[in-house]
């Protein structure tokens, strides 16, 4: 892996971490909204929206796992301390 590729992956990692945090915030926002919802339709809508945010978070976490796994392999291959 070149230094440029390494820096790109590290930068991608930071972007994903920010995105995961935002998905978490969105999830909690809809959970709070559900708590103050006044009709069953509203409850259902906010539940669905919260579920979607949770799925987004999972997808981003999977990408982060993939990047971390490959960064660790690259570290081992290059024998970096």
């Amino acid at each position: 892996m070149t230094q440029k590729e390494f820096e790109e992956l590290t930068s991608m990692r930071e972007i994903l971490q920010i995105a995961i945090k935002r998905e978490e915030e969105a999830y909690h926002f809809y959970i709070r909204a559900r708590q103050v919802a006044r009709t069953p339709v509203e409850v259902e809508m906010f539940t669905k929206l919260a579920e979607q945010e949770s799925q987004h978070k999972k997808a981003l976490e999977d990408q982060l796992t993939e990047i971390d796994a490959q960064l660790e392999i690259d570290r081992a291959l290059s024998y970096d301390v």
């Binding site: 796992t65 971390d68 796994a69 660790e72 392999i73 081992a76």
Partner: peptide
Amino acid sequence: NKFLYRRIK
């Protein structure tokens, strides 16, 4: 398998 090391939980 080292590909699986941190990918499979």
